[in-house]
Design a protein around this nucleic acid. Structure first.
Length: 959
RNA sequence: GCGAGGGUAGCCAAGCUCGGUCAAAGGCGACAGACUCAAGAUCUGUUCUCGUAGGGGUUCCCCGGUUCAAAUCCGGGCCCUCGCACCA
């Protein structure tokens, strides 16, 4: 590394923050731009992947700063939930992995002791995020506005938000089933296992439990995922080796497994175990199926697991391979049958009943599939796969047949809900929720599904809210385009969402019932607003306790009079009005950027809460979704690279190189694998640019040339392209032009003999500022080096000026460059070492013909007309060529859209342009070069190449 | 299952919205040359294939279609990734 990136970074960051160019002050009358990225949850150290979205945000914000906007780009942290709590617990018990991470990130021992307190954990990581990540990357954030979701003022803001939702009639209450630890209350089940120690992949299953009347009045209770198959019931399975219990539920007695009784007791009002029931005692007896009223035999099955469902199973051999094979085995196993007194006749009675017409199958899919695969034992591992196959096709494509009473002819998918609904209505069934696998809380206790009878929800299904939100989303600038389209569907499908939770969590007490804590998604929907108020709190102008409902109503909704509000809140009118006018200045939010995980969670509720609570002029204007930096083959991890602490990576690669990596490596809308080598190549690229610019400024001034105008023109057309890219937040194209293409422009300028110090400096005064959004530190350093005053970060980029003359300049150079390639190609193919190159530009009449073709405003050029017109003016000897050439030209021009033709075919004096480039060609190919017009009698053209000359493509003769 | 996105030359990755200007940007890697005592770095050129004239042939997952023309539009198939709710 020839450049000391690290000290450059420190130098400029200090300078920026000392000069406070990052601080956001409203300036009424000027353009403003307000952007945030979704704040990180405080759960530990972040990794280099997280910096992608943050860096892109900063680059966008910096570009806005340089295009005449006041910007507000605040940061904060999300500490709600139990992330910090579980982190503190891990520190407390000295969890080796956690301690290792802390130490390898350089956390001093004396700090470790502090981190057993969740609030200290939040405080600690707030510092880490701000200092080691965001400031370290040179962000233009207004640090005075930092806030965190557990700060008292934030809490007051959330209370207000919940009160507003209630006032809008958007809070509802109803029963809810949620996974919960017996000891610690509700927990989240997710793959990262933040709350739990086992079972992150578990899913919540929705069972229907069906009650079968037994002869003594008890009910045998089976759980099923396919209630519509009751019509195909032939028998009932009970495990003869299990001790079941009698459970008193309401005024009924249910027979279920002991674990099932315990689970049910969490979900039903009164469940009391009153006795036990020996599984074997039911063998060979009968019970009565719900809905059909059929009396079916009870058979033994060791597959009935007391931990799954209720431990009792209903048997549908027509569509469940396991049930069918169970019967097959039982028929075969004379011993077992004898033991429980089950006769062949009873088994025959339990023959499968066809109930579903499944496309591609006969009437009994389970029998068919097991026979086809050759399964005849319950031990066969392929049973699972057979079950999946039958279940999938039957459920999604099947139709209930005539055995299904009133449901005959129904799609199975629809029949499921209808059949269940009927049985629920008649008291034959209940709902029961269970997890698909064993889940253990961090404390070691089982996590089970628990009924919360009075759960609060935010009602996102509210039709008016949904409609307004969808309409507003159509007016927003949402990237990528695919999400702009899809958010309509997301909003459409949104239902009510639980918004508060019980238990020991960090967060805001629910103002309507303080037993609850506002849930982590619900408290981060409207929060961009709070960056306006947080500043006043952090500066001591308002205290959290004064931030009452009246306070927020006044500053955010414009309700009440200053005098009344001052009286009610104790906040002075001048402060109230300062906050209110800042809010009016900065709001609405222009862009909210967040990772793709937010697409179905945060962004929809962010949008809907704004729409629900704020006035329309304050609804958000834009969303950008970013994809992830991953590691090769998965998440960032220690073994695969990219897991080094962010400050270490910054030190190793340089912040600007990392920023360029994030900006340029790929579109923001694809996942990218982190590779150290790639980041290093961006470091190299920056060093090359650095030394290249060094060479440019230290080179001797060789005075003005024709190329100076070209360089200036080129800069303007680059500038115009770049403006377009940033309009769509396309940072990748922007970086590609600035850091790769523009360097090529300078090289071409030099190659073509340019060398004016003034022209170069003029171009650098544009190029270097254009780098600043992406690589601000190096840009500042370069800026200083070419003798400009700091800061390049606050330079106002000019608007691109595109003139006709500039277009001609560029076209002329394109002609030269294209000709270079053509000549090289010819030399390569023919292996000629040239002693002479003759260039012949197309004759006048060909240019004229192109000119009149381009002048036509018709989409399709009239060839006849073109020929006639050209015949009039073209020289006699050209006549024979005219028709064929006219056809070519007409077809070619027709392909170019009418409004682009003028620019694409702008007329260039080729003879003059090549005349100027003669020296250049001669130097490049090391031989003499002659330029003629193709109809110049003096031309040297023994092979008759001249007739190939076309406008934009001169003929070439080499010898 | 529901919903979304994707499969482009050795690798990564643009292009696909608005079909032609696409053998397809850019980067990396590889090869050759320059510089150098040498290595590295840097610079220049080449990098599907054939070709003694700027051209031809075959390509953008597979099959089929629309069109004068398809990487781009339409239909079908195969494969991959992601989100799915109290998890930020």
């Amino acid at each position: 590394m020839v450049l000391d990136f690290s000290s450059m970074e420190g130098k400029w960051q200090k300078a920026w923050y000392d000069a406070r160019i990052n601080e956001s002050e409203p300036a009424p009358g000027t353009k403003k731009f307000f952007m945030i990225f979704a704040y990180p949850g405080v759960t530990g150290y972040l990794h280099v992947g997280h910096m992608r979205g943050y860096t892109v945000s900063d680059a966008i914000v910096r570009h806005k700063m340089m295009t005449g906007h006041r910007v507000l780009f605040p940061v904060g942290t999300h500490a709600t939930g139990n992330g910090a709590i579980s982190f503190a617990r891990k520190v407390e018990r000295g969890d080796p992995a956690t301690m290792d991470i802390l130490r390898s990130n350089g956390c001093p021992d004396e700090t470790l002791d502090r981190l057993t307190d969740p609030v200290e954990v939040v405080r600690f990581f707030n510092e880490v995020y701000v200092n080691d990540y965001w400031k370290r990357f040179g962000f233009m954030s207004d640090w005075r506005r930092f806030t965190s979701t557990i700060y008292p003022d934030y809490t007051k803001f959330i209370e207000w938000q919940m009160l507003k939702l209630q006032a809008e009639g958007l809070l509802t209450q109803k029963p809810y089933y949620a996974p919960a630890c017996v000891e610690h209350g509700p927990v989240a089940i997710d793959a990262s296992e933040t709350d739990i120690s086992r079972g992150g992949d578990a899913e919540m299953l929705e069972y229907t439990i069906l009650k079968f009347d037994f002869e003594d009045g008890r009910k045998l209770v089976a759980a099923t995922l396919r209630p519509e198959t009751v019509f195909g019931l032939t028998n009932f399975w009970v495990n003869p080796e299990v001790e079941y219990v009698d459970a008193r539920v309401g005024d009924e007695t249910w027979v279920v497994s002991r674990p099932a009784a315990e689970k049910l007791s969490l979900q039903m009002d009164s469940v009391e175990i009153v006795g036990s029931a020996d599984g074997a005692s039911f063998m060979g007896k009968r019970c009565t199926a719900p809905l059909t009223g059929r009396a079916i035999p009870i058979f033994p099955s060791l597959l009935c697991d007391p931990d799954i469902g209720t431990g009792l199973v209903m048997s549908v051999p027509s569509d469940a391979p396991v049930d069918w094979i169970g019967l097959v085995e039982l028929r075969r196993d004379v011993e077992e049958r004898k033991k429980y007194g089950i006769t062949e006749a009873m088994i025959a009675e339990a023959s499968p009943i066809a109930i579903i017409d499944t496309p591609g199958y006969g009437p009994l899919p389970a029998v068919e599939v097991t026979e086809r695969i050759g399964i005849d034992s319950l031990d066969d591992e392929r049973l699972d796969e057979a079950t999946k196959e039958v279940y999938k096709t039957g459920f999604h494509k099947g139709v209930m047949n005539s055995s299904c009473g009133e449901f005959a002819g129904w799609q199975v998918e629809q029949a499921k809900d209808a059949v269940r609904g009927q049985m629920l209505d008649r008291g034959h069934a209940s709902m029961f929720y269970d997890l698909s696998e064993v889940v253990l809380c961090r404390c070691g206790n089982r996590v089970l599904v628990k009924k919360i009878p009075d759960q609060w929800f935010i009602d996102y299904s509210n039709p008016a809210l949904k409609k307004r939100s969808k309409e507003h989303a159509l007016t927003m600038r949402i990237f990528p385009k695919e999400y702009y389209d899809n958010i309509q569907n997301v909003l459409e499908w949104y239902r009510e969402r639980a918004c508060v939770r019980l238990g020991n969590w960090l967060g805001t007490r629910f103002p309507i019932d303080r037993r609850w804590i506002v849930e982590a998604i619900a408290d981060s929907t409207l929060y961009p607003i709070h960056y306006v108020t947080s500043r006043f709190v952090n500066e001591g102008k308002v205290a959290a306790e004064n931030m009452t409902e009246e306070f927020f109503d006044y500053v955010l909704l414009g309700r009440g009079t200053p005098a009344d509000v001052e009286r009610a809140t104790g906040v002075g009118q001048s402060v109230l009005d300062a906050i209110r006018s800042e809010f009016d200045y900065w709001y609405p939010l222009d862009v909210n950027l967040g990772g793709k995980e937010h697409m179905t969670v945060h962004f929809p509720v962010f949008l809907m809460n704004h729409v629900a609570i704020l006035r329309p002029q304050h609804w958000p204007r834009g969303i950008i979704v970013n994809w992830y930096i991953t590691s090769t083959g998965g998440k960032i991890s220690k073994s695969k690279g990219g897991a080094q602490p962010i400050p270490d990576a910054a030190e190793r690669f340089g912040v600007d190189a990392m920023r360029l990596f994030y900006a340029h490596i790929a579109s923001l809308y694809v996942d990218v694998a982190w590779e150290d080598g790639k980041v290093e190549s961006y470091s190299d690229r920056l060093e090359r640019i650095w030394s290249f610019i060094g060479d440019l400024v230290s080179a001797e001034d060789s005075g003005p040339t024709d190329m100076d105008a070209w360089l200036a023109a080129r800069m303007q057309s680059r500038l115009a392209d770049l403006e377009g890219y940033m309009e769509a937040y396309d940072l990748r194209s922007y970086a590609n032009d600035v850091f790769f293409e523009m360097a090529q422009d300078f090289k071409w300028y030099l190659k073509r003999g340019g060398g004016s110090a003034e022209a170069i400096l003029g171009a650098l005064r544009l190029w270097i500022p254009l780098m600043a959004p992406v690589t601000p530190h190096m840009a500042e350093e370069l800026w200083e080096r070419i003798g400009m005053n700091p800061f390049v970060s606050t330079v106002l980029l000019p608007k691109a000026e595109l003139s006709e003359a500039a277009t001609v300049e560029e076209k002329g150079e394109r002609l030269v460059a294209a000709l270079m390639e053509d000549i090289s190609e010819i030399l390569k193919v023919t292996s000629i070492r040239p002693s002479k190159i003759v260039l012949m530009v197309a004759p006048r009449w060909k240019h004229d013909m192109v000119g009149s073709a381009v002048a036509s405003t018709d989409k399709n050029i009239d060839i006849g007309q073109l020929i006639k017109e050209t015949m009039k003016s073209a020289p006699q000897e050209a006549r024979r060529e005219i028709p064929a050439f006219a056809k070519e030209i007409a077809m070619e021009v027709s392909r170019t859209p009418v409004d682009e033709r003028r620019k694409a075919y702008v007329a260039v004096d080729e003879l003059e342009a090549l005349g100027r480039a003669k020296r250049f060609f001669s130097d490049q190919f090391g031989c003499e070069v002659h330029v003629f017009s193709a109809d110049d009698p003096a031309r040297v053209d023994p092979k008759g190449r001249a007739r190939h000359a076309r406008p934009g493509r001169p003929a070439v003769y080499v010898e």
